[in-house]
Design a protein around this nucleic acid. Structure first.
Length: 424
DNA sequence: TCTCCGATTAGAC
DNA sequence: CTAACGGTCTAATCGGAGA
């Protein structure tokens, strides 16, 4: 039997994705140092190359950057997820035409199986060029025999301008591979974060090459199966398969930090009704039911001088549901049971778990299921899909102000809202 | 003693 | 000008409770 062919997996990753999305509709910002902030205008989640060069750190709280920002004229924008999701879909659609096997890994990344493709480099540049031409999005392509090495190859493509956005690990000789890996810090490896980098250093593992040739039993004993898989992947043995169909969510969380402090029960309930509606919409979108609902409240953990309270309460539902109204009633009830006055709440959320497909739900003669709500929910989803999220809401949703997040620097919804199209 | 479960940890993006 | 630090998700691991 012939040995299995070496895979050629391409990881296509958008450059500075959120920032690039904003720039596509604001070409005047192309060379402006800029960042995109997380929800509530809290932290830096995307940086332009200019902002990186000025030392703005990923994940930094924005209020800590304002001095630097003022000094250098760094522009900060609120995140516009409707825009990013739409741009992502456009990029992914283009990529899907290059291979029958691909995996949308995240909003800005896609694995594309190019195994057996002749002229790998040409195809990679074709992907880049077509995405650039049709969407304006800059991307880099990394090719490797495993997901982990494709990721690493992408890192090389991003970091070295000489690669012109494409790097093929498979094209290297064994000596070149060793050389390359010996010059990359182990923290660049997919699955090795901050903590593991430190722990690996304590074991004398600093570079990717160190990890690749590390003593297997020790690695296994000290770092577990995950690290062992990572090592195997670096040795070109595929351990992490391409996931062409993405599995259904096992749990769904909807939570938000508030724009300000919240002290009233009714405001918390109002926020939770929005979270319940969003969580159930996600549940219905994947045709599932949840059997457990959990609600949590949180005071501001960064305000150490204030009294802290972070309760959380879970209940099994009498029967699995995806009904916004019913989930909202439970959320409300749980909220009431946990609520204590005299605390300043900063965040709340709802978690749905024990999720199963609707089709596998057991019939039960005593089941109080009614079809009326099901039809209502279906209509609600269709309206919100057609006319935009938030067109139709559950009664109390949005009646109380004071919890909505701050978004003082948001761009218009260029691609999903007619009114946002600039008049020439 | 074995298994199950919830909480905790680590990571990705 | 205030006050100001994200949101979802998965998998592994560990310790205690219960069988």
């Amino acid at each position: 039997m012939a040995p299995p062919k070496v895979q050629a997996l391409a990881l296509v990753d958008c450059n500075n994705f959120y920032v690039s999305c904003e720039r596509i509709f604001r070409p005047d910002l192309t060379h402006v140092p800029m960042v995109v902030l997380s929800n509530n205008d809290g932290c830096v989640v995307s940086r332009s190359n200019e902002a990186k060069a000025l030392g703005v750190k990923m994940g930094a709280p924005w209020f800590e950057c304002t001095a630097l920002a003022e000094q250098h004229g760094i522009l900060a924008m609120s995140s516009n997820y409707a825009l990013y999701a739409d741009m992502s879909n456009r990029v992914m659609n283009i990529l899907s035409e290059f291979s029958p096997r691909s995996e949308v890994y995240s909003i800005d990344e896609c694995f594309v199986d190019l195994t057996g493709t002749p002229k790998m480099r040409e195809v990679s540049y074709a992907m880049r060029d077509r995405i650039g031409m049709w969407t304006g999005m800059p991307v880099c392509v990394g090719i490797g025999p495993t997901k982990t090495l494709a990721k690493l190859a992408n890192h090389v493509a991003k970091k070295h301008p000489r690669s012109k956005g494409v790097f093929n690990y498979n094209a290297l000789s064994p000596e070149q591979k060793t050389q390359l890996l010996a010059h990359i810090s182990v923290e660049e490896v997919w699955g090795v974060g901050h903590k593991l980098t430190q722990k690996l250093a304590r074991h004398g593992v600093h570079t990717v090459q160190d990890l690749r040739v590390a003593h297997v039993p020790t690695l296994r004993a000290e770092f577990g199966v995950v690290m062992e898989k990572t090592q195997r992947e670096l040795q070109e043995v595929p351990c992490i398969e391409l996931q062409e169909i993405q599995p259904e969510r096992q749990q769904i969380i909807c939570s938000r930090s508030f724009g300000g402090m919240v002290t009233e029960l009714d405001v918390l309930k109002d926020a939770l009704s929005t979270f319940a509606a969003n969580a159930c919409a996600k549940l219905r979108a994947q045709n599932s039911h949840a059997a457990v609902i959990q609600v949590f409240l949180q005071t501001n953990r960064f305000r150490k001088e204030l009294p802290q309270y972070m309760p959380s309460l879970a209940v099994p539902l009498p029967y699995p549901t995806h009904d916004s109204l019913e989930v909202n009633r439970w959320a409300s009830c749980l909220c009431e049971r946990m609520f204590k006055p005299d605390y300043q709440y900063k965040k709340a959320g709802i978690m749905l778990s024990e999720i199963s497909p609707v089709t596998r739900r057991q019939g039960d003669l005593l089941e109080p299921e009614t079809t009326s709500n099901a039809k209502l929910m279906q209509a609600l989803d269709q309206l919100n899909q057609r006319y935009g999220r938030g067109t139709v809401k559950v009664s109390t949703q949005g009646a109380f102000k004071g919890w909505q997040m701050r978004q003082e620097r948001k761009s218009p919804n260029y691609t999903t809202c007619w009114d946002a199209i600039p008049v020439v």
